[in-house]
Amino acid sequence: MAGQSDPHQSLFSAEEVEFIAEDETVEIIPNLRMDALNFICGDFGPFFPQIATQVPLWLAVALKKRGKCTIRPPQWMSVEKLTQVLEAERDSQRMFEQLPFHYVEISRLLFDHARDDIPDVYMARSLIEDIRDVRFHKVETNLETLTERAFALKINNLSAMEVNIVRPFVGRALQAFYKHDSLELIPDQERVSDRRPQVANNATRRHLRR
């Protein structure tokens, strides 16, 4: 995949994307009694043993690491639901099935830190991997249809990780189309001098095509 050839071009690192995903809420069942936490990012709790409550993922993972709660995996992470999603992804060529924007990061964090709370963890894990692969294959195939200048490209249903991977490649491709097709041929400010021969080249090509 071309996008992966130059990872430094991507704006957000994998860790930063994970950081963003850690603010998604999950349900936990605490096994301790603790007062409400009045955080800068919001108020959570109070916590009572066996009473489910909603917290951000980072807090859930922190409590889980200390053995203070179990995490209730989200609905969409059940084997049944994932099997449906995978089938639907395989059946359709274009549209992507709805999974949360951060499904890769969320599932990854839960597999890493809360394996024992996920029923059929191996099955769920391999289903998510398959879904990832199928979806990515589709993203790549769809990118091949990108052949001309566009000012905007709707990419609804793409997940955060997928966006992050295709961003450098698609961004540069569209920019190149834009530049080559542009009537005023805006010179590249940062490399004015070595651009000149190329600009002339593009101009003739544009002529031929019209």
Partner: peptide, 13 residues
């Protein structure tokens, strides 16, 4: 012309 609904994801100029 472009129309955007809430939460539409787009790669754009």
């Amino acid at each position: 012309l472009l129309e955007m609904k809430p939460d539409d994801l787009c790669i754009i100029h």
